[in-house]
Design a protein around this nucleic acid. Structure first.
Lengths: 156, 156
DNA sequence: GGTGAAATTATTTGGGT
DNA sequence: ACCCAAATAATTTCACC
């Protein structure tokens, strides 16, 4: 069941919208009154902007960022996956079904998929990859640090 | 006023906490009363749990997920970066300073960094990478689709 | 887009299981 | 640790300008 229903409307965002998005990205729970103060509008106008951004699909959802370590995931790996001939769709399905793959992109080039894997321990790596290696060649890199954690792109 | 001081306390999360996190990840704006109903607790207890999860650093922050296409980023690339001898720290700084790099991990193996790049157009690729290629070899893959968009790992 | 009152919602408190 | 219920306080929503 894939979501992504809003077709990413080609919208024109003004400076106020961008300021709103930046403020919400930093703290999505701040009161509308404070958001309003930050962007220099009244609270109702601000609330309506936020609703519009949601309806347009600019804001995909309100969510929480969770520390994976708190869930016991002490390791992360980036895995490049190159399916064997004829195994492309199957490999994609396998990856989708393994919840420890928290992210996967299909890309151009020799490696078909680039995925992010959360692990409780290094032993789990083989355990999980074994479900993939029957159908693909993999190349794994262990994350040592994260110089840039998921951040907003420039809004300007 | 920055927050994010909690060092990812090694905490024990019970089933209720996990259910809360899942519900909040899906919709961080639902009223405490509804959260409470979902996890089978009273509203005050639920509110306190959420506060505790925040204080512990399990919840890093409340945020919004923004559709990059709405910001005009119609293209994504995964870039592997292998700094030239002696350029490692400088390359890391350069990447950090280019806001279109929305994510970057330092990993084991031949390629030192694996990064995600948001682009307005394919022309922007060279424009941005030129700031890196003076100091590193790069290998770029364009994202064609995203079989798994950022999701929660298993909470069990 | 602004204003101000009504309706929801969250928070706090006290007492109890 | 949690529940309940009530009081307080805050926020969002809904008229209308």
């Amino acid at each position: 069941m894939t979501k992504r229903l809003a077709p990413a409307t080609p919208t024109t965002l003004d400076e106020t919208d961008r300021a709103l998005l930046a403020a919400l990205a930093a703290d999505a729970r701040q009161p509308v009154s404070e958001l309003a103060r930050r962007v220099g509008l009244s609270a109702p106008s601000t609330a309506e902007r936020v609703r519009r951004l949601e309806a347009q699909g600019v804001i995909e959802r309100f969510t929480v960022q969770i520390d994976p370590r708190a869930l016991g995931f002490t390791l992360q790996a980036i895995v490049r996956v190159k399916p064997l001939p004829g195994q492309l769709h199957l490999v994609e399905d396998v990856i989708r079904r393994i919840p420890e793959f928290v992210e996967c992109d299909k890309v151009t080039g020799d490696d078909c998929f680039i995925c992010r894997l959360y692990l409780h321990s290094i032993e789990q790596l083989d355990e999980i990859l074994s479900k993939v290696t029957e159908r693909a060649e993999t190349s794994t890199a262990i994350v040592k640090s994260t110089p840039v954690a998921r951040r907003l792109p420039p809004l300007g």
